[in-house]
Amino acid sequence: MNALALFNQSRTITDLRQAGAQQGTGGPASRSLTDIFEAIRTSQRVTKPAGMARKLSTLSGEADLEIALKGSRTSFKVLVSRVSMHLGVSWLEKLFAQIDSLLDVDEWDASDPVPNTETARTFIRLLLAMKVSRRPGLGVSNSGNIVAAWTAGPNRLTVECLPNDRVRWVLARVTDGETERAAGDGKIERLREILGPYTPAVWFEYAD
């Protein structure tokens, strides 16, 4: 007997016949957990998240670019929303304004790839891992990855956010009149340690 059959059996044991218990209250952004339970409860019927059909179509023309950018903005904002309790409302509002500006169809070069969810996820995890107080400037690389840039006078740090928590970074740091430059790539969990000798507070925190 497979797992699904076991769950179906237990459904008949538990009194789920009560009207209303068989399909739970919906929730647009929490499909994954819901789908698991709903698939168990109702077996084959799965509701496709809104917008998924659009991803299946090939992109052609301005209308499709607009749809792709809109989808990217939506995904990005929903990801930010999920960790908003750690960022604060003020941060959230400013970050949303940056996302709108970055992914504005009027400013977008149609030949550039539109950022996907993976790069946005890495960017958000970068902010949380580095405990960033100062918001970075945002851009998009030729590969369609989010690029975060912090500038404090001549001190610059630029981080390209790749899928799966990977980042590529380059910095310029002035100490005692000397400019030091460095670059590297790796996981975000190691970045704070790697940047340690360059006193990253100059980028991530507001000056007193």
Partner: peptide, 30 residues
């Protein structure tokens, strides 16, 4: 009222954390 209460471990969106979900669905059918 009826209640569907779910709890689960989920992949955390926050680095160096694990996340627990408490999902409460309170419903009335009568």
């Amino acid at each position: 009222l009826g209640v569907t209460l779910q709890s689960a471990t989920v992949e955390s969106p926050v680095p160096r954390c694990t996340s627990l979900v408490i999902d409460i669905d309170v419903f009335a059918a009568t």
